[in-house]
Amino acid sequence: MIAKKTNKTAILYRMVMTDHMCPYGLKSKDLLERNGFVVEDRHLTSRDEVEAFKAEHDVETTPQVFIDGKRIGGFDDLSAYFGTATKPKNATTYKPVIALFSIAALLAVCVTWLSLGTVVAGRTLEWFISISMVLLGLQKLQDVERFATMFLNYDLLAQRWVRYGYIYPFVETGAGLLMMAGLLTWLSAPAALFVASIGAISVFKAVYIDKRELKCACVGGDSNVPLGFVSLTENVMMVGMAVWMLSKL
């Protein structure tokens, strides 16, 4: 297959040193090539070269891209040039939740296949919810301090007893693991029912009664997921799972 010729060219200045290769330089090169540019890749191989380049072009950072003799800028500027700029770090997004629940669903199918020899069965939904609880708990356990701080913004029990925010991730994860294994239901189901009920009431009050705009701590303390439907769904799922498990005792 003959490669299609292109007249589009760009000059890229980026750091390529023995002890450091700028990742944004590589991303800029890749972005240019994916947009059909032939890249004249110019390496800055020492700190002196980097500082001299920045002084010459009056810029503060590298990499720097030039197209048709005009300086475009670094990777963020190049992304904006091509209309592919990413959202700001503090922008709200549902991507972490979508990814987490998608993986939970696939894991539930895998567990069903390994355990029962079929893709979907009656227990698949149970495993989906319990796996989701474990994954959500794991997200919180990565930084319990940050989670507890964000949790205090809306959880009614945590606002009365601060230590509850530090306990919650362990309860959620532990209950999810026990429910996955079908062990100690007399302990896991009431624990899940307790924390999820308080969580559902807290979210409903904060969002739908008090009309507050907050970030959800459901996927950890550094998430930009808005508090609302997602967190309420998480808690309702846990309540439903707990009630179902108790009914099976």
Rank of each mutant, 00 (worst) to 15 (best):
A3Y: 06
K5V: 14
K8H: 11
D19G: 10
S28T: 08
S28L: 07
S28K: 03
K29C: 10
K29I: 12
L32G: 00
N35H: 14
V39Y: 03
V39F: 04
E40F: 11
D41Y: 08
D41S: 11
T45Q: 14
K54H: 08
K54V: 13
D58L: 14
E60H: 09
T61W: 04
T61R: 07
T62V: 14
Q64H: 07
V65I: 14
F66C: 02
G69H: 04
G74R: 00
F75R: 03
F75N: 05
D76H: 08
D77A: 15
D77S: 14
T84E: 07
P88N: 06
K89T: 13
T92R: 11
V97M: 11
I98Q: 04
A99R: 10
A99W: 10
F101D: 04
I103E: 00
L106C: 13
L107H: 11
V111E: 06
T112Y: 07
T124I: 13
F128V: 03
I129R: 01
I131E: 05
I131M: 05
S132F: 02
G137H: 08
D143K: 11
R146K: 15
F147C: 07
Y154F: 14
L156E: 02
L157K: 05
A158P: 00
R160P: 01
W161C: 14
R163G: 07
Y164P: 08
Y164R: 08
G165T: 06
Y166R: 15
Y166N: 11
I167A: 09
V171E: 02
V171N: 07
E172W: 05
T173C: 11
G174P: 10
A175K: 05
G176D: 08
L177R: 09
A181M: 13
A181L: 15
I198P: 00
A200K: 02
I201M: 06
F204E: 01
K205G: 00
K205S: 02
Y208C: 06
Y208F: 10
R212F: 01
E213G: 03
L214D: 00
G220H: 07
D222V: 15
D222H: 15
S223R: 04
G228M: 03
F229M: 06
F229H: 08
M237H: 04
V239L: 09
M241T: 04
M241I: 06
M241E: 00
L246A: 07
S247A: 14
S247R: 10
K248E: 07
